[in-house]
């Protein structure tokens, strides 16, 4: 794919409310974000409000109920926007795709961006209840999440586990980078997950963290009940996601950083 001819644009299908909370459910370890996102879409009856049109993805559409859709779409209502991908985003176009999603969210004056995802846990099989770690885009937000300070007049009821040191690789790393660059508040919730098996339980834990932060009710019982069905359905996209993550050198997340 040559870089000179690439284009990307976000086409809006419905009026998009400004000042919403923008969530991201993008393919990553355990497909945590995608599983959480698809649960949010059905739980909150979110409608497709926009989609990504680009030549940086393979030439494909996804059919749902007999009609075509592009694989990366934005769902929403008055309060929420949710960017979700039904395709493993190719490693060589991920920067531009994420950058344009974040920019679009900024234009829509999203008040905070919250990517939901997984953090690979080598011993996931032994973990009965996955822990969720938060990563924030600014020191003020970190203090807020730790329960040490207020942010916009609000305090968190219970402090979150903060991912203090380490590498982040993949779509959420870029959402956080561009949010930090553009001065958009962002908090990523990363749940301990299987690296390359779809992990509905991890998705439920990430949604619980989201519900705690936003003070909204998210019923995850359906998600847990349908766990086996989701795991079976998600095999193909998981397999392709694992391949793309390998190209992004995802295993660097296990590395210990040297602070220089």
């Amino acid at each position: 794919m040559s870089s000179t001819t690439n284009y990307i644009r976000i086409i809006e299908r419905k009026p998009v409310s400004s000042g919403a909370v923008m969530l991201y459910g993008l393919p990553d370890v355990g497909l945590v974000g995608v599983i959480a996102a698809s649960h949010m879409v059905s739980e909150f009856n979110l409608e497709e409000v926009a989609f990504v049109d680009t030549d940086m993805l393979p030439p494909m559409i996804v059919l749902h109920k007999g009609t075509p859709h592009t694989p990366i779409r934005i769902f929403g209502n008055n309060e929420l926007l949710l960017a979700v991908s039904e395709i493993a985003i190719p490693a060589d176009s991920i920067h531009r795709i994420i950058r344009s999603l974040v920019k679009w969210g900024k234009e829509k004056e999203a008040r905070i961006m919250i990517p939901l995802g997984g953090i690979p846990a080598p011993n996931r099989q032994e973990i009965t209840e996955p822990k969720v770690f938060a990563v924030a885009s600014s020191p003020q937000l970190v203090e807020w999440l730790e329960g040490k300070a207020e942010w916009k007049g609000r305090r968190v009821d219970e402090p979150f586990n903060i991912l203090q040191e380490g590498y982040m690789v993949g779509p959420y790393a870029l959402v956080l980078q561009y949010c930090m660059q553009e001065n958009i508040p962002a908090v990523a919730f990363l749940s301990q997950a299987f690296y390359n098996y779809p992990d509905p339980q991890a998705a439920a834990m990430a949604l619980k963290a989201l519900s705690k932060l936003m003070g909204i009710q998210i019923d995850v019982s359906q998600l847990l009940e349908k766990g086996e069905e989701i795991r079976l359905k998600a095999r193909d996209i998981m397999k392709r996601t694992t391949k793309e993550l390998a190209k992004m050198r995802k295993t660097q997340e296990y590395d210990i950083p040297l602070y220089v």
Binding site: Q125, F194, Y195, N196, Y197, P198, G227, E228, E229, R231, L232, R235, M238, K239
Partner: peptide, 23 residues
């Protein structure tokens, strides 16, 4: 048949093969 997701991990002492078998 359905092909499950599998993974092979090689450590200094052993080879760990896992497979996701919902249902």
């Amino acid at each position: 048949t359905i092909e499950p997701l599998c993974n092979v991990l090689v450590t200094p002492d052993e080879v760990v093969v896992t497979a996701d078998l919902p249902y």
